[in-house]
Simulated scan of single mutants.
Amino acid sequence: MNKDQVKGVVEQVKGKVNEAVGKATDNPGKELKGDLQQGAGKIRKAYGDAKEEAKDDAKRNNP
């Protein structure tokens, strides 16, 4: 697991918290911020996953 994967998951969790707070307080701005954070977190995690996959492929191809 690399730092982009970890930071992506953390961002997703923060987004879920912000979304829940926005719903609980009837604050659409906070809810939207949470949705955007979750999306950004998913993208960052996917980037980290791709980096990890490339690293694994390089190890397999260069024993």
Results as ranks from 00 to 15, higher is better:
Asp35Arg: 08
Leu32Asp: 14
Ala58His: 13
Lys14Cys: 03
Asp26Phe: 11
Ile43Asn: 01
Gly22Phe: 05
Gln38Phe: 09
Val13Trp: 06
Gly29Arg: 08
Lys3Tyr: 00
Lys55Met: 06
Glu11Gln: 14
Val17Thr: 08
Asp26Met: 07
Gly22Gln: 09
Lys33Met: 04
Gly15Ile: 15
Asp35Ile: 13
Lys16Ser: 13
Glu31Val: 05
Gln38Glu: 07
Asp49Glu: 15
Asp56Cys: 00
Leu32Arg: 14
Gln12Lys: 14
Gly8Pro: 00
Asn18Arg: 13
Gly41Asp: 01
Val21Leu: 10
Ile43Cys: 00
Ala24Thr: 12
Asn2Gly: 13
Asp57Tyr: 13
Pro63Thr: 11
Tyr47Gly: 00
Gln37Pro: 01
Asn2Tyr: 03
Ala24Ser: 15
Thr25Gln: 08
Lys23Pro: 02
Gln38Lys: 10
Glu52Gly: 01
Lys23His: 15
Lys51Gly: 00
Glu31Lys: 15
Lys33Thr: 10
Lys7Asn: 15
Glu53Ser: 07
Val21Ser: 05
Lys7Asp: 14
Glu53Asp: 02
Asn61Ala: 12
Gly22Asp: 07
Pro63Ile: 08
Asn18Cys: 05
Lys30Glu: 10
Gly41Pro: 05
Ala20Asn: 07
Lys55Asp: 03
Val6Leu: 10
Arg44Ala: 04
Tyr47Phe: 04
Lys23Leu: 14
Asn62Leu: 13
Leu32Lys: 15
Arg44Met: 06
Pro63Gln: 09
Glu31Cys: 10
Asp26Val: 14
Leu36Asp: 04
Lys51Cys: 01
Pro63Cys: 00
Glu31Phe: 05
Asp57Thr: 13
Gln38Gly: 06
Lys45Arg: 11
Val17His: 03
Met1Pro: 10
Ile43Val: 06
Leu32His: 14
Ala24Gly: 15
Asp49Arg: 07
Lys55Asn: 06
Asn27Leu: 06
Asn62Val: 09
Gly8Gln: 02
Thr25Phe: 02
Ala46Arg: 03
Ala50Arg: 03
Glu53Trp: 04
Lys42Gln: 14
Arg60Val: 04
Asp4Thr: 04
Asp56Tyr: 02
Arg60Glu: 13
Leu36Arg: 09
Glu11Gly: 00
Leu36Ala: 07
Val9Asp: 00
Met1Phe: 01
Lys30Asp: 03
Asn27Thr: 06
Arg60Lys: 14
Lys16Ala: 13
Lys59Asn: 06
Lys3Gly: 00
Val10Trp: 01
Ala40Asn: 10
Ala20Arg: 12
Gly41Arg: 04
Val21Tyr: 06
Lys45Ser: 06
Val9Pro: 00
Ala54Tyr: 11
Ala50Gln: 03
Ala58Pro: 01
Val13Leu: 12
Ala54Asn: 10
Leu32Pro: 01
Gly15Phe: 14
Ala50Trp: 02
Ala24Lys: 12
Asp26Ser: 15
Lys3Ser: 08
Asn61Gln: 13
Gly29His: 05
Asn2Ala: 06
Gln5His: 02
Lys51Trp: 00
Ala46His: 02
Lys42Glu: 15
Glu52Pro: 01
Val6Asp: 03
Asp35Gly: 04
Gln38Ser: 04
Lys16Met: 14
Gly22Met: 11
Ala46Lys: 02
Gly29Trp: 02
Glu53Met: 05
Lys33Asp: 11
Asp57Ala: 14
Ala58Lys: 15
Gly29Leu: 04
